[in-house]
Computed example of a mutant assay.
Amino acid sequence: MRYAFFLAVSLLLSGCSAFQTTPEAPPAPTRHSQEITRAQTYGLPKMGTLSVSVRGSPDDAEREIAARANQAGAVYYQFVMIDETVMPGLWYATATLYGALPAARTQQ
């Protein structure tokens, strides 16, 4: 019984580390907004959020987010959610927009 308790506690504690990510550098900025992962958002200034509703497929929602991120002048964006609504074929997507790294941080 004692070993089962220690095993359960060990598994629980090791599972908590799965929710932490190691920060990674985002890709170099380009003319168009780029999708990044959560690990790449560390230190980037948030510009806001963006939501769209699109008829079609999840790919259509992703393309619409990318186009609107470009229009908003965002350097990067990260998807928060892509989901089909109660109406079949109508997709809803939300993304967070980010700017470029501040100049002081890029020189380090």
Rank of each mutant, 00 (worst) to 15 (best):
A67W: 03
I65M: 00
L44I: 06
S10A: 13
Q40K: 10
F79P: 02
S33R: 00
L12E: 14
T85M: 11
Q40G: 08
R55D: 07
A95F: 03
S10I: 04
I65W: 00
L12M: 12
L12P: 14
A72I: 11
F79Q: 11
V9N: 12
R2C: 12
D59L: 09
G89S: 08
A39N: 01
G89I: 08
T21R: 11
E24F: 02
T96Y: 08
A18G: 11
P23D: 08
Q107A: 14
V54L: 07
V9A: 13
Y76P: 00
A28F: 13
P29W: 01
A67H: 09
M1Q: 14
V75Q: 09
Y76K: 01
T41S: 05
F19E: 01
F6G: 10
M47E: 14
L97F: 03
T94Q: 08
R38N: 03
L12F: 15
D83Q: 14
G43L: 02
L90K: 02
Y42V: 15
M47N: 09
Q78C: 10
P23C: 11
V80L: 14
T96I: 10
E64P: 07
A95P: 04
A93Q: 01
R63V: 04
T94A: 08
G99M: 04
G89K: 09
L44Y: 03
V52F: 01
V9S: 13
A100D: 01
E35H: 07
S53W: 10
S10G: 06
R63I: 03
A74N: 07
Q40S: 08
E35Y: 04
T94F: 12
G15V: 00
I65D: 00
I36P: 00
K46I: 14
A100C: 05
L7Q: 13
E24L: 13
P26E: 01
A4L: 14
T41K: 07
L11K: 15
A104Y: 11
E84Q: 15
M1S: 15
A39C: 01
Y42I: 11
Q78P: 09
A69M: 02
C16P: 03
T22I: 07
I82T: 06
Y77I: 04
S14V: 13
R2M: 15
G56Y: 12
G43K: 08
R105F: 09
Y42T: 11
A67E: 02
Q20H: 13
D59W: 05
L12G: 15
T96R: 10
S57Q: 06
Q20D: 10
T37W: 09
L44M: 09
T37A: 10
A72N: 05
